[in-house]
Amino acid sequence: MFEARLIQGSLLKKLVDAIKELCTEVNWDISNSGINMQSMDGSHVCLVAFNLRADGFDHFRCDRPLTLGINLGNLAKILKCSGSNDIITMKADDNGDTLTLMFESEKQDRITDVDLKLMSIESEHLGIPDQDYSAETSMPSSEYQRIVRDLSSIGDTVNISATKEGIKFSAMGDIGTANITLRQTSSADKEEENVKIEMKEPVLLTFALRYLNNFAKATPLSSTVQVFLTKDLPVQVNYNIQDLGYVKYYLAPKIEE
């Protein structure tokens, strides 16, 4: 059987909210090392992956590896029944067709349990090659969210370039053009408020803003985000979930024919 108890249950809610619009039906792979998911979006343009480590849970038990087929929209509806300070416990039998979720209030004076019907989902695992990044940027996740949101009001696509000057995001549309350049900083009070840029070679890539905006739904999970750019390859946008794991998004570029 599988059983996992998460004191900070709101993280599960935030994680599901961060991926449910891109991926609707997904498999969660459970093993004694934790919970993993990898899924393409419906249009097969991006790949979403998360990992929740067993040691990030208050209690984690998995007797043998399980695959849980989950409709994320339905799971999100169930998680709406949990309070923001609730402790969440998930349980599934080895051959069961439901995932039981239990929400306990902080004072443990209110307990909700819900059974979510599981489904059989065919999915393919993609191999993500080890990439030698051209440029790696770490920035506040609120900054990333603002850049992709602001540029979406100008155009549908963004050119992202890394040069000695910094990381430049450029959008072009019917109403005009906009450029946002981020330079490396070191003066912020907190380390995570700084922008860090590590560039190995200049790089310029074009992406659909719609997806980059969707990735920003993970903003509540982490105060920082890492953006990895590699020549002619998908961009990788990483949110580390403190003491628990990560959610990573990969988006294929737009390429001139």
Binding site: L126, Y250, A252, P253, I255, E256, E257
Partner: peptide, 14 residues
């Protein structure tokens, strides 16, 4: 602005 590539053109099936 270029053609949107699919993610599977970069990451192969395992």
């Amino acid at each position: 602005a270029g053609a949107q590539k699919g993610i599977m053109s970069f990451f192969g099936k395992k």
